[in-house]
């Protein structure tokens, strides 16, 4: 299938692709580099690319001034928490729909998907008021609830597309051999389902980590995850490029690495199986 290609064409492809890729990646690279500069170097004219005195002081300052770690932990708790709860609710549902499909299964799936199409701003007012009245504004638990619910359809769908690929014959064979429901789940299904569950977990943490509508509207100083915390740099702190860069680099680094590992799953998860 790899077609024989001349070295010359290969070199041209490579050259063009690398130039474009570096251009696309450049803002991220520039942010990472700037985070290690002093504020003066960060706005130097002409800009300094690599030849500067690398420093970690911005990272220290960002932490000292604003208790960065607290917001980082908010992001971790909210994204991981909402994902785990979501999985707990969605695994049984996806399992049942994949292995015991009924007449309504397709309709239920499509309906779940339709809840994802609801623009968040359409329910902003009631949610804000509910949160205010029940003391959920600016709490981690409030955001965990919202993010669990908005990502639940994606979790169910992703799990469903993975579970559906598990051959049912194996289950039938196990049943013939007298395996009960619990051992069926424990010994056969679980090992086969783990990769799908892991991919779903990964993608969903990414989505929850970067969610920036509810986190911005429902949190303030206390429960703000990094999305909302970084927004506080919009002015005038944003003009301190090195500190903005340090705060940004720490906010995107973990998710960037996770994202690199989940390219394939991203396609499946975000197109609801329409493109594989």
């Amino acid at each position: 299938m790899a077609r024989a290609v001349s070295n010359r064409r290969m070199a041209i492809n490579t050259g063009v692709a690398w130039v474009l890729a570096i251009l696309i990646f450049f803002p991220i690279l520039w942010t990472i580099l700037t985070s290690f500069k002093t504020e003066a170097t960060a706005i130097a004219d002409p800009p300094v690319f690599l030849a500067f005195d690398w420093t970690l002081e911005n990272y220290e300052t960002v932490q000292e001034r604003s208790n960065y770690f607290r917001h980082f932990m908010n992001s971790v708790v909210i994204s991981v928490g909402s994902t785990l709860i979501g999985l707990l609710i969605a695994i049984p549902a996806a399992w049942a729909m994949a292995f015991v499909p009924g007449r309504q299964t397709k309709n239920v799936l499509m309906w779940m998907l339709s809840t994802k199409m609801l623009p968040p701003v359409g329910v902003l007012v009631p949610l804000y008021l509910i949160f205010r009245d029940y003391g959920l504004l600016d709490t981690r638990i409030g955001l965990v609830i919202v993010l669990t619910l908005i990502n639940l359809p994606i979790i169910v769908w992703m799990l469903y597309t993975y579970f559906r690929e598990i051959p049912v014959d194996i289950l039938e064979a196990a049943r013939m051999d007298g395996a009960g429901l619990s051992s069926e789940v424990l010994y056969i299904l679980t090992p086969m389902a783990v990769p799908g569950i892991a991919s779903t977990l990964l993608l969903n943490i990414i989505l929850a980590w970067n969610e920036a509508f509810w986190t911005l509207n429902l949190t303030a100083a206390n429960a703000a995850p990094l999305t909302a915390f970084i927004a506080s740099y919009s002015s005038p702190e944003g003009l301190f490029y090195a500190k903005l860069s340090a705060a940004s680099t720490m906010a995107i680094a973990p998710i960037l690495v996770m994202g690199w590992f989940s390219q394939r799953q991203l396609v499946r998860g975000l197109t609801f199986g329409a493109v594989k």
């Binding site: 790899a2 520039w30 920036a212 970084i230 995107i252 690199w260």
Partner: peptide, 27 residues
């Protein structure tokens, strides 16, 4: 197309998608 370093090129190209909206906007 076939090329050298496909993996790295692809990682660079998809990276912006993983940057949270507030960070990319402010940067």
């Amino acid at each position: 197309q076939p090329m050298w370093g496909t993996g790295i090129v692809r990682i660079m190209v998809i990276s912006p998608f993983f940057v949270m909206p507030t960070v990319s906007a402010l940067v």
